[in-house]
Design a protein around this nucleic acid. Structure first.
Length: 233
DNA sequence: GTGGAACGCTGTCGTGGTTC
DNA sequence: GAACCACGACAGCGTTCCAC
């Protein structure tokens, strides 16, 4: 690792970052706050409107959110989703707002929009491909993060429960505070926030359809992570 | 009783194979 | 080559089962 990268990593590890996994009426949101590899907080069933105060209380710099930041416009999929499909990363297809209103199945997406709206005053959505400074939130999602860290051919949504837990542990994060799959997904979002602070993220999409940020690692790093995961990779 | 894991469901997209 | 269909992928939800 270059000296400048070491310095960025050190700064990123000192700052608190957060990940939010968005559910609907019953589950609400899961919030996980990381500082370095330490899980500072893991809180479940939080209303979107309560997130800013918790982020400020813990000095959170960047928030990764597991929910679409923008509805689809027209019949074509969002640019970010098309980009990921070309890269071999399957993703959930964001509907139009009208489609979202037609089924309760999409209630969780409206909760996601509430998360971005609630954070707008303290952590406005990053609307550029690269992070420069300040407190922001950004869109990401666990399967894409897993694909980015392990490779699309290794990551499996079917094994998400065990594989994502093993991935977090391979990266040195204590998962004992992360009781549910949702908490672990939020932790992966927080982890991506650390990569964003270091300038080590890959970005899919455009300003119109919104950006999706995922970690960027070297092939050697991916091999090392997979080796640490053992049978779960 | 509580919490975690597993499973099937919904809705849409992209891919690959088959048919015309 | 174009059109069609089947399949597998993702997300969250609800239910069921099992371990503690």
């Amino acid at each position: 690792m270059k000296a400048s990268d070491q310095q960025k990593k050190g700064i990123a590890d000192q700052l608190a970052v957060a990940g939010v996994d968005v559910g609907a009426h019953k589950k609400l949101c899961n919030l996980v706050i990381l500082r370095g590899t330490e899980v500072v907080a893991s809180i479940s069933q939080i209303a979107p409107e309560d997130l800013p105060a918790l982020c400020i209380e813990h000095g959170v710099q960047v928030v990764g959110v597991d929910a679409p930041c923008i509805w689809r416009k027209g019949s074509a999929a969002r640019q970010a989703e098309r980009d990921m499909a070309r890269a071999g990363v399957s993703s959930f297809s964001t509907p139009t707002e009208e489609q979202g209103q037609s089924s309760r199945f999409y209630d969780w997406m409206f909760f996601g929009m509430r998360v971005y709206a609630a954070l707008a005053a303290t952590h406005p959505r990053l609307q550029a491909a690269r992070y420069t400074s300040g407190s922001v939130c950004f869109e990401t999602f666990p399967h894409a993060i897993t694909c980015a860290l392990l490779g699309a051919d290794v990551a499996s949504a079917a094994l998400k429960s065990t594989q994502r837990k093993a991935l977090l542990e391979a990266l040195g994060i204590d998962t004992t505070k992360l009781k549910s799959v949702d908490a672990r997904d939020a932790a992966l979002c927080a982890l991506t926030a650390q990569f964003l602070l270091r300038g080590k993220t890959r970005t899919y999409g455009d300003a119109v359809g919104g950006f999706i940020h995922v970690p960027e690692v070297t092939p050697d790093d991916a091999v090392a992570i997979i080796a640490k995961m053992g049978k779960f990779a």
